[in-house]
Design a protein around this nucleic acid. Structure first.
Lengths: 339, 339
DNA sequence: GTGAAAGCGCTAACAA
DNA sequence: TTGTTAGCGCTTTCAC
């Protein structure tokens, strides 16, 4: 069964192929009589244009490439949602690739996207292999790096200081009177590392000993992992006064484990999360966290890409700091001053 | 700045274009000497193949189309994660389109995917416009409908009975002694409707009055929406003995609102969720729910697609019931028998 | 407003 | 193993 092509439509309608092409792309430039004839031929044949041919001939793909480390994290789902919202509405297709937190896979993803001739790339993170960076710079298309702030952006950069956020979270715990504070993370990706750096600095500033991080394993952050890690920590007998989790999922898991083991939060231990996920406000006790702006980051990134594509001249580098907000709640409200 | 093409690589390496093409696709079929020359030419020029041209020439796209109603729901994120896991590993590209719960947008999505010449389509749901259905049948490619069970599948169908799940959830509440049971939903998509049907039937079977659903608004399910809806219900003064929420997010929001209003769960009101999201086990009280198999559904759908593509002959229709499981927890454990 | 000719960058089929 | 030829299905350019 041969696929129906534009030529088939043209001969059925008794016009030249180019006329069919015009009806499809700029119907206004074709007389009504022909337009109707062509359209009914399209309907009759069930013709669906082949975008590969169109892309090849026009060298326009109307496609934006997006790279995220994982899909299995609400953070990125919210961000992708925003990107889709804006870009689809503007008539672009979005190709999402995940790098599984690997710079090598990211490099492959970049090559794949460039092979697709995407018109812009929006990439989560600022750490890439040298070749990745070089490919992105040479590609001569709008590139947006997101979620973090770079000292040396490739082009556009929309994010926040993970380190300052980690610092603020830790500072909050210190201000509440906690001293033995542990940093808890699953996977140690760049963003978690930066948060840890912020934690470390905050501890040092007030002369406290930073207590390393509990775990480092190649699994995505989840409630279950939080339970596990907390359990192991408790089993080892080194229960701190407070823990700062890189992620609300971990924090919630830790809280769950506390409940099982009859450790009271925040009376026996304070727990601080990160990202302020939707359920965090309604956990019991409610979870203190750092609110981050995933949706807004995606939205802005997409809008900036559209602008850059419109200007069609490569924009000069620009950096936007989306900031973050401390959200103190019950899980860190313990009056730890007089233990 | 002209883009570098395969011909450029060929002339730099002093070979014919087809040799370069072979080095890229089946390196084994080219002598090592030439392969090295070609590869270094590719490196030197920073050549990236144009997939549009490749697709057009080979009429193979190695692309699978996926349609989901929304990205803003963990359910679909987990499912997409599984699809990616399997399909990317098998060397396919995945194009995800969301229909925003609209059959018209779904029809457009189908057209777009067919225009991309995807080699298979995996689509969430079993309700489509007549044209959508016709396009899918005529396209002569593997089609998997997921999440629900169809009486008349287009091709493959991997899902569960939403109605029986709704029935089981309701039955659980009835068995626990609750009688005034309300069904709570935000958006009333097909799956929510089926769950409602199951609820309705279960109520009727034991002679109880089904209490309609509380709300119907075009917003995605969220904790915040659950709070809102529950609040409105309470304000109206019609607090039932139990509520069955179409979604754990709504249920969690309802529980949060209960806590604010000092309504005890499950003593004053029992709450039943749906989907058994990760946080549900560690809510306080822990949330009873229906566990559904999103990841497994996606994995199986992807695997079936690969099989079908391999066989290269259109598979006969097949239906797989993934089932579900009732997960009773604290939020419905109230001993309501003697109120 | 409509069409003819040429070509986008690659690969299938065949030949050497 | 390597190359030649032809063409995938569309759009660009230029002419009418």
């Amino acid at each position: 069964m041969r696929r129906i092509t534009l030529d088939d439509v043209a001969s059925l309608a008794g016009v030249s192929p180019i006329t069919v092409s015009r009806v499809l792309r700029k119907p206004g430039s074709v007389s009504e009589a022909l337009r109707l004839r062509v359209n009914s031929a399209i309907e009759n044949l069930g013709y669906v244009p082949n975008v590969a041919a169109s892309r090849l001939a026009s060298s326009r793909t109307h496609t934006i490439g997006v790279i995220v480390p994982t899909l299995y994290n609400v953070i990125f789902a919210e961000y992708l949602f925003a990107l889709h919202d804006v870009l689809i509405a503007a008539g672009f297709q979005v190709i999402v690739v995940n790098s599984r937190y690997s710079e090598v896979e990211e490099e492959n993803a970049i090559k794949a996207l460039l092979g697709q001739r995407v018109e812009a790339i929006i990439i989560a993170g600022i750490h890439h292999t040298p070749l990745s960076r070089q490919l992105l710079m040479k590609a001569n298309l709008p590139v947006v790096q997101t979620f973090e702030l770079s000292d040396d952006p490739i082009n556009l950069n929309i994010g926040m200081s993970q380190e300052r956020a980690g610092h603020a979270a830790t500072r909050h715990l210190i201000d509440r009177g906690f001293q033995r504070i542990t940093f808890l993370t699953g996977n140690l990706d760049h963003r978690a590392q930066s948060r840890f750096d912020g934690y470390h600095t905050a501890m040092q500033e007030v002369g406290l000993r930073s207590m390393g991080m509990i775990a480092h394993r190649p699994r995505h952050s989840s409630v279950a992992l939080g339970s596990e890690l907390f359990g192991e920590m408790h089993d080892r007998g080194d229960l701190p006064e407070a823990i700062f989790c890189t992620d609300d999922n971990l924090a919630l898991g830790a809280m769950q484990e506390c409940r099982k083991r009859r450790i009271r939060v925040p009376d026996d231990i304070a727990i601080m999360g990160f990202h302020d996920l939707e359920f965090s406000a309604c956990a019991a006790p409610s979870l203190s966290s750092i609110a981050t702006r995933r949706y807004e980051t995606g939205k802005l990134a997409a809008e900036k890409v559209l602008l850059a594509l419109d200007a069609s001249t490569r924009q000069s580098n620009e950096q936007i700091n989306m900031g973050f907000a401390l959200v103190p709640r019950e899980s860190t409200s313990g009056d730890a001053g007089h233990r």
